[in-house]
Amino acid sequence: EPLWIRPDAPSRCTWQLGRPASESPHHHTAPAKSPKILPDILKKIGDTPMVRINKIGKKFGLKCELLAKCEFFNAGGSVKDRISLRMIEDAERDGTLKPGDTIIEPTSGNTGIGLALAAAVRGYRCIIVMPEKMSSEKVDVLRALGAEIVRTPTNARFDSPESHVGVAWRLKNEIPNSHILDQYRNASNPLAHYDTTADEILQQCDGKLDMLVASVGTGGTITGIARKLKEKCPGCRIIGVDPEGSILAEPEELNQTEQTTYEVEGIGYDFIPTVLDRTVVDKWFKSNDEEAFTFARMLIAQEGLLCGGSAGSTVAVAVKAAQELQEGQRCVVILPDSVRNYMTKFLSDRWMLQKGFLKEEDLTEKKPWWWHLRVQELGLSAPLTVLPTITCGHTIEILREKGFDQAPVVDEAGVILGMVTLGNMLSSLLAGKVQPSDQVGKVIYKQFKQIRLTDTLGRLSHILEMDHFALVVHEQIQYHSTGKSSQRQMVFGVVTAIDLLNFVAAQERDQK
C-alpha cells in the first residue's frame, strides 16, 4: 500500500453525458421521505430548503428570480454533511469501515464536522487534520463531537509532509485500522450531490432553472449537481466560483495573481482535486475576500440567511453572472454553511477592521482624538531585521541585547519573508524542534498583521487588541530589464502597544 495517494490523481470516472444510468458502476440512493420521529440526527441530513432572495437581486438590477439552496440546514450545519454520511455509508457497505475503526480526514473543517457527527452516532474514533487558518468555532464544535484535532501550517503546499493532507496520511500509516475516506478522491463525494442535492433542486424548481452558481473546494458539490442538471435540464448554465489565490478556475489566465492566501474558508485549493470535473462548468468567476464577507453580511442583514463567507462569494458572483438572465428565468445559488463557524471572524466588526474589510468610518461609535491620525505620526525608528541564514542562537542574543521581542526576517534585497519572535524561538528550542545552530528560517511564521503608514491609529489599535505587534510595510514598484514591473513589500518598522501608548501619553502631556 502506498504511503500516500495524491489528492489530485487523474480521475478514473467514466461518467458521460447521455450515458444510461443503468451502466453506472456505483451504488445510487434515492431521496427517502422522513418519518415524523427521526431514529437519529443523521436522518436530518439532506432535504434542505430552497429560499427566495428578495432584496439583493433587485438591489443589483437582476431581472431573474434568485433562489438560495440553504445547505446550513443540514444536521452539522453545512453541505459537507451529505458527503460525510455518504462516504461512511459506502465504506461500511463495501466492508472497508468496521466497528471500532478510526476515521482520519484532512479538511478545512466542515467535512470534519460532518464526519465527527456521523462518527459520534456510529461509534468510530475520528481524527481531523486541518490548517491553522480555520476558525476556532470549527475546532470547538469538533472537540465537542469527540474528534481529535491536529493543526497544520496554512501556507504548507498540499504535497508537503507538513500539509493537512501529508499529516493525515502519516497518521494513517501509524494508526492500525485507520482510514482516510479522502473527500478529494472519493466518488461518494460527487455521488452524494448527484443522487440527492441535484434531485432536490430539480424537484423544488419543478425542473425549471436557467443558471446554477456554486463555490468550489473539493469540487464534489458542483460536479455532482452539474452532471445531473446537464442530464435533466441541459439549458442550465453552470457557474463556478473560485477565490483569488486558488488555481481551480479555467482558463488558467484567471488564476494569475501574486496573491497566495485568502481568508474565506472551505473553497479554493492549490491543486485540482480528483473529484472535480471542470468540463461540466460553463464559466468560472474569481471572487475576493472583501466581496465575500460584504455579501455574507448582506445576506444575514437583508435576507435573514445566517450563512458563512463562501455563501457571500457565491452570491457576489451570482449578481454578476445572472445579469444575462431575463424576467421569468431563474438562478439558484448554493449557500454551503452557517455563520456559526465564523462568529469571531467576519461577523465581528473588530475582525473586519483588522483585516481591512471594514473602515473605521463605517462604525458610528465615538472615537478618541488620536483615532484618525496616521501611523506615520508615530515617528517610528528604523527596524531591526535579520536574514533567514542567521542562526536561532545568534538571533536570540541580538533580540535580548537590543531589547526586542520580535524581528522581521528579510532577504538580501529587503523583501519581507516573515517574522521571528523570542517566545516562538525559545519554545521551539525547548520542544526540540530546532537547535541553536539551525537557521532562523526554520522558525519563520507568517501569521502576523501588516499595516501601512497611511493607515489610521484606530486601525492599529484594533490590531493591537488581539496581537502583540504589527509590521509596518510599504510597497515598492521595481522595474526589470524586460520592461515588466513587480510590486514588493518592504519593512518600514515594527509597532507595539507600548509605542502607541507612549505616543498618546506624550501628545497629551505636551497639550497640557
Rank of each mutant, 00 (worst) to 15 (best):
A505L: 02
V280L: 14
E365D: 15
F492Y: 15
D455C: 14
D510C: 14
L460W: 05
D467Q: 10
F271Y: 06
G403C: 15
G432N: 09
R330G: 02
L254D: 03
S287I: 13
I334E: 00
I416R: 08
D362Y: 13
T421A: 14
V317T: 09
E397F: 13
T294S: 11
M352W: 01
G403R: 15
R350P: 04
P368C: 06
H394C: 04
E412G: 13
Q450L: 15
V415F: 15
V473S: 14
G312H: 03
G458L: 06
V495F: 14
S461G: 14
V339M: 09
Q259G: 12
Q489S: 12
A382R: 11
K484C: 13
A413H: 02
N341M: 02
G379M: 10
T314L: 01
V495C: 13
E290D: 14
G266V: 00
I239Y: 08
L363F: 11
G328C: 10
G483H: 14
S310A: 06
R400S: 06
T364W: 13
S486K: 13
S481W: 07
I451E: 03
A292E: 07
V494W: 01
D282G: 12
Y342Q: 01
V409S: 05
I390D: 09
V264I: 12
L429T: 03
L417C: 09
P273G: 06
M466D: 12
D510V: 15
L384V: 14
D337R: 04
T456C: 11
R509L: 14
L430F: 14
Q507V: 14
N502P: 12
F357T: 04
H468W: 05
I477Q: 08
Q435A: 13
T421Y: 06
F357Q: 04
L347K: 04
I334C: 01
S437Y: 12
M419N: 12
I300D: 02
Q329Y: 08
A413Q: 15
L471T: 08
G356I: 08
H372I: 10
Y479D: 05
K446D: 07
I334H: 03
Y342I: 01
Y445E: 03
D270F: 02
F271Q: 00
K446N: 15
Q478E: 08
T260G: 11
A431T: 12
N288V: 08
E252N: 14
I498A: 12
K359N: 15
E291P: 02
P408M: 00
V494D: 02
V409N: 00
I300N: 01
P383L: 15
L276V: 08
E290C: 11
T279G: 11
T395P: 10
L457Y: 15
A506E: 10
Q511W: 10
L457I: 14
T261Y: 13
E291V: 13
H394P: 14
L501F: 09
P408A: 08
V280Q: 09
E244L: 02
K359H: 11
P408Q: 12
D499A: 05
T389H: 14
R509S: 11
D510A: 12
Q511N: 12
Q435G: 12
I398W: 07
D242P: 01
G458T: 07
V275W: 00
L248N: 02
V264A: 07
E360A: 13
E465F: 05
W284H: 00
I390L: 13
V317L: 12
Q511R: 12
Q489G: 05
T364D: 13
T260P: 04
I272M: 12
E508Q: 14
H372N: 13
L325M: 08
T364G: 11
Q435F: 15
V319M: 15
M425C: 10
G432M: 05
I267Y: 06
N502K: 15
Q507L: 12
D411T: 14
L500F: 14
Q406A: 07
Y269I: 01
E324Q: 15
Q256I: 12
F448V: 15
P243A: 03
I398P: 03
S310R: 04
H462Y: 15
R488D: 05
I398K: 11
L325W: 00
F469K: 08
P388C: 07
T385L: 12
L358G: 07
V434C: 14
I239D: 03
L422H: 09
V333A: 13
L387K: 12
T344H: 06
L422K: 08
K442D: 14
P383G: 08
E244G: 07
I334P: 00
P336L: 05
K286D: 00
F357E: 04
P388I: 02
G441I: 12
G245H: 00
E263R: 03
S287V: 09
Q476P: 14
L248Y: 01
G308Q: 01
K367Y: 10
A382N: 11
D405M: 06
D499I: 02
E412T: 15
M352D: 03
R374N: 14
R340M: 06
F295T: 10
D289V: 00
P436G: 14
L399N: 04
E244Y: 09
R374A: 11
L380G: 10
I451M: 13
Y445P: 08
H480P: 13
I396R: 05
R350A: 14
T294A: 12
E327L: 06
E365M: 13
C331V: 01
G268W: 00
V494P: 04
Q326A: 11
S246W: 00
N502L: 11
T260F: 13
Q489A: 12
A322D: 05
F346V: 02
Y479N: 14
E465N: 11
M419V: 15
C331D: 00
I398Q: 10
G441F: 14
E365S: 13
K320L: 12
Q435P: 11
P388S: 14
V281E: 07
L325T: 05
V275R: 00
I463T: 15
L276T: 03
M343G: 03
V317K: 07
K442M: 15
L457R: 02
C392S: 07
N288S: 11
T279L: 15
M298P: 09
L380R: 15
L430D: 10
V319N: 04
G308R: 00
Q450S: 14
V241A: 03
A316Y: 12
R374T: 11
G483F: 14
D438A: 03
I390T: 11
T496K: 08
V241R: 00
A497K: 11
S437H: 09
T274L: 06
S486E: 11
V473W: 11
S338T: 06
V495S: 14
E361V: 13
A322N: 05
N341C: 00
K359F: 09
I272F: 13
W351P: 00
C392G: 07
L347M: 07
L378E: 05
G240Q: 01
A311F: 06
T344D: 06
G268I: 01
P383E: 08
Y262Q: 05
K283Y: 09
A497G: 11
G304R: 03
G423P: 06
T482W: 07
K359M: 13
P436S: 11
Q354A: 10
V504W: 10
W369F: 08
R330F: 07
V434D: 11
F346E: 04
E327N: 03
E291K: 14
V315D: 02
T261A: 04
P251K: 06
Q439A: 10
G308K: 00
E303V: 09
R452Y: 15
L373T: 10
P436A: 15
L353P: 02
L384E: 10
I498N: 07
N341I: 00
V420C: 08
Q507F: 14
Q447E: 15
T496Y: 03
E377V: 11
L363Q: 07
S246P: 01
G328E: 09
G493D: 13
G393S: 14
I398H: 08
D405E: 10
G312P: 04
Y262H: 02
T261S: 12
R330T: 10
Q302D: 15
H372L: 14
L399Q: 06
L373W: 09
H462T: 11
T294L: 03
V494I: 11
L325R: 00
S310P: 00
E253Y: 06
H372C: 14
S485A: 14
T257R: 13
G458M: 07
Q329I: 01
F448Y: 15
G356K: 07
A470G: 12
L380Q: 12
D467K: 08
N502I: 10
A506V: 08
P243I: 05
V375D: 06
T496P: 07
C307K: 00
K433M: 13
R297Q: 05
S427M: 03
I390H: 07
D455S: 12
G393A: 15
L276M: 11
A413E: 13
G268D: 00
E290I: 11
